[in-house]
Simulated scan of single mutants.
Amino acid sequence: MGEVLKVEGGFAFKSKDFEEHGYPVIRISNIDGATVNVENTAKIPPEKLGKAEKFRILSDNILIAMSGATTGKLGIVPDLSGYRAYLNQRVGRFSLKGNAAIDRKYLWFFLKSAICQQQIKILAEGAAQPNVSGSELRLIRVLCKRSRIQTHQETASCLERNKYPIELMSYWMNSLERIHSQRIFWANQDCSNNSANA
């Protein structure tokens, strides 16, 4: 994923700085799995923004919950015309790299797919609370092989109409098997290294 996307985490705003009026600060609770609620949010006054300006979000940004029970939950930022809103810590933002050859709508369907969510779940395991970092998310493989899919736009259109191409589903399932194989391999490697260092 790191070849076509940037994954950026949010700013560590201090809760004591939140006030009744100000710019919306998007937290995990504002992501509902489809969109992002920019109305019922914590607010940060302009004078307390500090270094947070670079964490401003834009319309159509895709956001992800990066910790807690809902790790992997996604939402698309709605039209922010006339708004300024900012990204809180533990919320990530996906953005396409300049020359990335991937359709945004296809990316959304891929991120929502069981195959991607399973990868996120695997990455988030291992701690008392599920947690995934931006660097870990960049390890996820975006499935967009042209030999199986004519164009991202056509695939996204099919998915939007709930017509799942057999080739696409087969490709995703085969990739899931590879992910599990890789997980077993690295788990065995860790066990071998721990034994050697004992």
Rank of each mutant, 00 (worst) to 15 (best):
M1F: 13
G2D: 14
E3W: 08
V4I: 13
L5E: 13
L5T: 13
K6L: 15
K6S: 14
E8Y: 02
G9M: 15
F11P: 07
S15R: 08
E19G: 13
E19W: 01
H21L: 14
H21M: 11
H21W: 08
P24N: 07
V25E: 06
R27P: 07
I28C: 12
I28T: 15
I31G: 07
V36H: 03
N37H: 00
E39T: 14
E39D: 08
A42H: 10
K43W: 01
P46F: 05
P46R: 11
E47W: 06
E47S: 15
E47Y: 12
E47V: 13
L49S: 00
L49A: 05
L49M: 07
G50F: 09
K51H: 12
A52R: 02
K54Y: 03
R56M: 12
I57W: 10
L58A: 14
L58S: 13
S59R: 08
D60I: 08
N61C: 07
N61R: 09
I62N: 14
L63T: 09
L63I: 07
S67M: 07
G68I: 08
G68H: 05
T71G: 11
G72D: 10
G72E: 09
K73E: 13
K73C: 02
G75K: 10
I76E: 10
D79T: 05
D79P: 04
L80W: 07
S81V: 06
A85Y: 05
A85E: 04
N88A: 14
R90V: 04
R90G: 02
V91L: 03
G92T: 03
R93S: 06
F94V: 04
L96K: 13
K97P: 01
N99E: 15
N99A: 11
I102G: 06
I102V: 12
Y106C: 02
L107H: 02
L107R: 07
W108A: 02
F110N: 00
S113G: 06
I115K: 01
C116I: 02
Q118I: 08
Q119R: 05
I120C: 06
L123Q: 07
G126I: 02
G126T: 04
A128R: 05
A128F: 04
N131E: 01
V132L: 05
G134S: 02
S135P: 01
S135N: 10
E136K: 11
E136D: 05
R141P: 00
V142C: 05
L143D: 01
R146C: 01
S147K: 06
I149V: 09
T151Y: 00
T151L: 06
T151R: 02
Q153V: 10
E154R: 04
E154I: 11
L159Y: 01
L159F: 09
R161V: 06
N162T: 11
E167L: 14
M169E: 15
W172Y: 15
M173C: 04
L176A: 15
R178Q: 15
H180N: 11
H180I: 13
R183K: 15
R183F: 12
I184M: 15
A187F: 11
Q189N: 13
Q189S: 06
D190G: 07
C191Y: 10
C191T: 12
S192M: 12
N194R: 12
S195Q: 14
S195T: 03
A196L: 14
N197D: 04
N197Q: 13
N197H: 03
A198P: 00
